[in-house]
Simulated assay, not measured.
Amino acid sequence: MRVYGLKTCDTCRKAMKALEGAELVDVRKDPVPGGLLEKAQAQFGEALVNRRSTTWRGLDEAERARPPLDLLADHPSLMKRPLIEDGEELYLGWTPEVQRALGAG
């Protein structure tokens, strides 16, 4: 199981603590692989971009209008976190539903 997020993100830390044996991939150092990001975009759509983040608020309108995958390539911290890859399954965020689905809640 891989958890894509930021090592400094409190939500990612909570997920890692609950998901024993999971590997944290810090998206600032190691970007989410393109194919996986495309699959996540297809599954989660607009929810993949965190529009409440400090990074988002710092973008101008022209930047915000760019395609989500291009934005995430340039600003990996814009991704809603964590993105969890468990085999073929993808989960976004650390909601009670995700926790239950992964047996962590």
Results as ranks from 00 to 15, higher is better:
33 P>W: 09
3 V>H: 00
50 N>E: 06
79 M>Y: 14
77 S>L: 04
52 R>P: 01
42 A>V: 08
44 F>R: 11
24 L>Y: 10
102 L>N: 04
11 T>L: 07
39 K>R: 08
52 R>W: 02
58 G>K: 03
1 M>N: 02
52 R>Y: 02
31 P>S: 06
25 V>E: 00
76 P>H: 05
86 D>L: 15
20 E>V: 13
91 Y>E: 02
38 E>K: 12
27 V>A: 02
21 G>I: 14
16 M>T: 15
54 T>Q: 14
77 S>E: 01
61 E>Q: 10
84 I>F: 10
70 D>K: 15
94 W>N: 00
92 L>K: 04
22 A>R: 01
105 G>W: 03
21 G>P: 09
59 L>Q: 10
9 C>L: 07
64 R>H: 07
24 L>P: 08
50 N>H: 08
13 R>Y: 13
6 L>Y: 07
82 P>A: 08
9 C>F: 01
102 L>K: 04
78 L>N: 01
54 T>I: 11
76 P>Q: 05
89 E>C: 09
98 V>C: 06
1 M>Q: 00
10 D>C: 03
51 R>S: 05
67 P>S: 03
17 K>F: 12
48 L>T: 06
65 A>Y: 09
30 D>A: 15
101 A>V: 06
67 P>N: 03
39 K>D: 03
36 L>G: 05
81 R>F: 12
32 V>Q: 01
52 R>E: 08
21 G>H: 14
17 K>Q: 13
25 V>Y: 00
92 L>E: 01
45 G>N: 06
62 A>L: 08
56 W>G: 01
18 A>P: 00
95 T>N: 02
14 K>T: 08
55 T>Q: 02
32 V>M: 07
71 L>N: 02
